[in-house]
Design a protein around this nucleic acid. Sequence first.
DNA 1: AAAAGAATTTGACGATTCGTCAGAATAGTT
DNA 2: AACTATTCTGACGAATCGTCAAATTCTTTT
Lengths: 247, 247
Amino acid sequence: MAATTAWKTREIERREEQILEVARGLLLEHGYFGMTMDRIAAAIEYSKGTLYQHFESKEDVLCAIALQSEAKRLEFFDRAAQFEGLTRERITAVGVAYELYYRLYPTYFRSEQLIHNQEILAKISEERRDMIMQNAVRCHAIMDRIVDDAIASDDLKLPSWCTPPTLGFLLWSLTSGGYQNLADPECLKVMGVENGVEAVRRSSQVFLDGFNWRPLTTKHDYFAVSRRICAEIFPDETADAVLNPPV
Amino acid sequence: MAATTAWKTREIERREEQILEVARGLLLEHGYFGMTMDRIAAAIEYSKGTLYQHFESKEDVLCAIALQSEAKRLEFFDRAAQFEGLTRERITAVGVAYELYYRLYPTYFRSEQLIHNQEILAKISEERRDMIMQNAVRCHAIMDRIVDDAIASDDLKLPSWCTPPTLGFLLWSLTSGGYQNLADPECLKVMGVENGVEAVRRSSQVFLDGFNWRPLTTKHDYFAVSRRICAEIFPDETADAVLNPPV
DNA sequence: AAAAGAATTTGACGATTCGTCAGAATAGTT
DNA sequence: AACTATTCTGACGAATCGTCAAATTCTTTT
């Protein structure tokens, strides 16, 4: 009996990575319709049949790419969650994490947007869909945790219409909505906004001020806090002067 | 010479409306991939060739649908802009307009999202793309105008990092981002939010409080203002008790 | 009313792409 | 070397987009 050898297993893993790398390149350069299975197969120098042994459909490839992106985002969020300080400093750390993710991995950000499409989600394997959901849940759990801590420590008192997950949803809507609009050049032209990333960052603080999450920006230098977060949590990612501190 | 008669012209217009109606139905029921040109042709009882005399591509059909949606949204914004009152009441009117649009025409909202896709936009006629942009610009101009008035009348003083269009962009990001997340059932599940629409509406006010746009919610009953806006500007649309006042 | 000519409609067709699968090629075993 | 298990291949069927030459319908002229 000729079983799959360890040697072969490694070869398969290597190939899977290669496929995703090539696919991401095609996706970015030629878009969704330009990323064809034939082109991917040609680029990896294997046949389409082999490609389909790794991924059950084109959408599955797409989701695998998005999954990598989400994993990176979750990694950033996890690291941000380790920042120690006041609750509002901690939620700021999550904001910094998301901003860095958006700025360092714009291609990842874009592929994530793509799968927020029910038609694409409908075509993929149960397994991958679960993993995607799992990641999203964990990202929101991180935010929820901080909001809960803020309430417990009296830094924040939410109005009755706003549950802790609701605040997470709103903050998420503001930032992800903002980045999404910024990522669309047509939108940008229409809206006439400059320094969009800075605006999103600062307006998040305005938003939290509106909820009276203490200490307010008038009492606390969140610019300095962001710098500390960069230095302590994301030293490698912000070694480049452009990203430290966030402009 | 046999010229196109007035009779025929009307017939053509009627058919164009019919196509869009059928196409929207297919889009909603079966999604982007389920909306095929053959199915549309079958449903309107004309051949595909005739269909292609009205629209130069599938994307063109999609954009025509989105254009109808945007026209409706613009109509709502225009009406909201006619509300007379304090500047912050007027921006509230725009918020009410957008909320009503989202709640009354969820199918329109969805088709608008679809065309915010560069690949689809790239395939359509110059003419339609211009019209789409034009509508978007006019919606933002309405917001910008109100922000400018607020600054002129000292109701609002923007921080130096935030231009008037930037505030429009941010408010837009919060609300459109929020509705978009709410429209995605998977997102909703992940985030664990209830009463999302109410949360978006109230959080917009929190946001404006953060910018210190007077009068603040602590000094002014924007719930009552919203009711007035509904009664004066959108009487027909909010005749149904569920929508008046916005829950 | 019939013929000629213009406008409109049709659906079969070429091109593209997805996903499959029977058979070829390769690797491992005896 | 012969045999078996595994992996790989690319031609193929199906679905869909968009086209266009031919068929049909409508209008005008004689």
